[in-house]
């Protein structure tokens, strides 16, 4: 098998202004296939805007996004997903009124382009695959539970299963461990890491917790005031004086995994 050398994600000069605030001031990013890329930065660095611009929620003022060799700048979310880009949200985003099983089925049906079928019984379709995906993220036995009644951590797992149902080649995770206790965070990101590895999915994730970042990231991009401040391996980024400057007072960077 020959490795595909095209970057899975190539962002060039991405810019976006909100009124007087330059949220993104020309961001470049290149992510190779198989990477587990962390995007870090202090609050207001533009991480969420960056994510939302790549995934079609926000239109960029300038710049381009190339996904697996294809220009997808400004493409609508549903088209991006069908092209193979999956995402999860900082604020957990599942279908609360549906069962866990149905949550995944909706995604499987859409992926199979069956969401327009009006006569078939949905319950019978993709039930096995949905159960498999739930088991993969550790939710076996919770199939019939209403998603809204699941614990926060389990909803995050469910969201991962929903995203995986679309068989993405790239998964963008916006603060996948937000709202979790420290121990749970490492477990959670390890699960994402393990599953992504097993399925060959490249990942880009934003994260506040440096322990989580250093536990799994292959490379790290540091955003600061809407620009890329630094990029490199975890060791390079940790040793970067500019990064230490930005995170002044947050000794976590220097301490790394011990945080």
């Amino acid at each position: 098998m020959r490795a595909d050398m095209t970057p899975i994600l190539h962002v060039r000069g991405l810019a976006r202004r909100f009124g007087g605030l330059q949220a993104l001031g020309g961001v470049d990013l290149e992510v190779a296939r198989g990477e587990f890329r962390a995007i870090i930065g202090p609050n207001g660095a533009g991480k969420s805007t960056f994510f939302n611009t790549i995934t079609g929620l926000i239109r960029p003022d300038a710049g381009s996004v190339t996904f697996a060799g294809r220009d997808v700048t400004g493409m609508a979310p549903d088209d991006l997903v069908r092209a193979g880009m999956g995402r999860t949200f900082q604020i957990t985003s599942v279908f609360a009124d549906l069962s866990a099983q149905e949550n995944v089925q909706v995604a499987l049906l859409a992926h199979a382009r069956q969401s327009w079928r009006m006569w078939a019984r949905a319950a019978a379709l993709h039930a096995e695959r949905a159960a498999e995906l739930l088991a993969l993220v550790g939710l076996a036995g919770s199939e019939a539970r209403h998603a809204g009644t699941l614990a926060h951590g389990d909803q995050k797992r469910l969201e991962l299963a929903i995203a995986l149902a679309g068989e993405p080649t790239l998964l963008l995770l916006d603060e996948p461990t937000a709202g979790m206790a420290a121990q749970e965070r490492i477990e959670s990101i390890s699960l994402v890491h393990r599953v992504a590895r097993a399925l060959g999915v490249s990942c880009v994730f934003t994260e506040h917790d440096m322990a989580v970042v250093f536990a799994v990231a292959t490379r790290i991009t540091v955003l600061h005031q809407g620009r890329v401040l630094a990029e490199g391996t975890p060791a390079e980024v940790r040793a970067n004086p500019q990064v230490q400057q930005v995170y002044l007072g947050e000794s976590v960077i220097a301490e790394g995994v011990h945080a």
Partner: peptide, 25 residues
């Protein structure tokens, strides 16, 4: 009770999320 019906319910529950499973709302 069809795939279309369950998609409608998902759309009601979370219109933003449903776009990100590839559904045109």
């Amino acid at each position: 009770n069809s795939p279309f019906g369950i998609t409608l319910r998902a759309l009601k529950a979370n219109p933003r999320r449903v776009q990100y499973v590839g559904v045109d709302v």
